[in-house]
Structure formats: C-alpha cells, structure tokens
C-alpha cells in the first residue's frame, strides 16, 4: 500500500492526534498564562471543547476501524470461532441501521432545524460548523463497520481486540527485564 493510501485508511487517527495535540497545548497555554500573568483567553475553553467533540467522534470511528468497541462475548465461549463472526456481522447490521438513521437525523437537524442565532459565544461562528462532525463521523464509522466485516468474512482476516494484552509480548518484556537485572 502506498503511503497515500495508508494515510487515507487511517485518516481518523491523523485527524484525532492532531486535534488532541492542539487542544492539550491550548489548555496548557491557558494554565500557564493564568498562573503566571493572572490572565485568561476567553476563547480557549470553548474552542478546545469543540475540538474535543470532533476528536471524540472521529476517535469513535477509528475505534470501529480497529474493532475496539466492547462487546460481551462470554456467551460465545462454546461456539466455533467460525460461527462467531457471522453472528457478530448480524449484530453489526443493527449498528449500520443506527448510524444511517443518525446521519439522516443530524443532517436534518443541522440544515433544517437549527436556530439561526445559535453561535459560539466567544468565537462568533455558527454552531452548525461544529455539529457537522456528526454526519461526517457517523458516515465514516458506518464505512468502517462494513470494512471490518468485509475483512473478517470475505478476506478471512483475524481482527484482534486491541485491548487484549498480547501475552507473548508481556512475557518477552518480563524476561527482558529479568535479564537486565541479572
């Protein structure tokens, strides 16, 4: 895969890391300025909250891409692994339904229902510019859900839960530390 496609395929990660780095720095700047000069920028809190909202919903889409959204799975313990992915794919149909419906709702809200005066208090722009993340991120998330199921079912890839701590890795690391000590 070319670098370009790699970036596109991980677009949420790039967006989120940038947003996270910026709002963390903004908030730090605010703390420093307040502590040292007893002064505060009125717009920092509001702007960082808006960036945070974008960060969260793109992050949720990225988590979907990684197959990281928590499921309860202990009831599948005695099923063959081959069957589980089909059951989960069926469950994901509900997810797609929810997202599509939500994209419709958020577009309807932003373009037809929002109050025309509803603007950012300190920055002046209309809040629809912040809300627009909702249809975009949920559409992207829907694509990710389909992508993950395509990989699992058609391509037969094994999507591992990024939460699951890799036991081999832990063991190797523990052994390494032992060596260091000895």
């Amino acid at each position: 895969m070319t670098k370009f496609w790699y970036v596109i395929d991980n677009i949420e990660s790039y967006i989120c890391r940038t947003l996270l780095a910026i709002f963390v720095c903004l908030l730090f700047l605010q703390v420093v300025v307040r502590t040292l000069f007893d002064f505060s920028f009125s717009w920092v809190e509001e702007l960082s909250i808006y960036m945070f909202v974008w960060f969260v919903f793109f992050g949720a889409s990225y988590a979907a891409k990684m197959g990281a959204h928590n499921r309860v799975t202990f009831q599948f313990k005695f099923l063959p692994p081959g069957a589980i992915k089909y059951i989960e794919a069926f469950a994901d149909l509900f997810w797609v339904f929810f997202n599509v419906y939500f994209v419709y709702l958020s577009i309807d809200f932003i373009f037809n229902k929002m109050n025309r005066f509803q603007s950012s208090q300190t920055l002046g722009f209309h809040l629809s510019w912040v809300y627009i993340v909702l249809p975009i991120a949920f559409a992207l998330m829907t694509f990710r859900v389909l992508q993950v199921n395509y990989k699992k079912i058609i391509k037969g890839e094994d999507m591992r839960d990024p939460d699951a701590i890799d036991l081999d890795e832990v063991r190797a690391e523990a052994a390494e530390l032992e060596l260091e000590k000895a």
Binding site: H69, N70, R71, V72, T73, Q75, F76, I84, I87, E88, F90, A91, D92, F94, W95, F97, F98, Y101, F102, L105, S106, D108, F109, I110, K113, Y131, L134
Partner: peptide, 28 residues
Amino acid sequence: IGAPITVALGVSTLISFLYLDENPIKFV
C-alpha cells in the same frame, strides 16, 4: 448476539423512541 455495548444502548433507545412515536432528533 454480540453487538457492541454502545450499539445495544443506541438501538434499543432508538427503537423505543420509534415505538413511542417520538421524534428521535434530540439524539443529535
């Protein structure tokens, strides 16, 4: 059936809204 927890919450609420004949637009 193994839906993510967030989906289980969202979908069951959405269906309840539709059942009650209420507009779920407040989700946004």
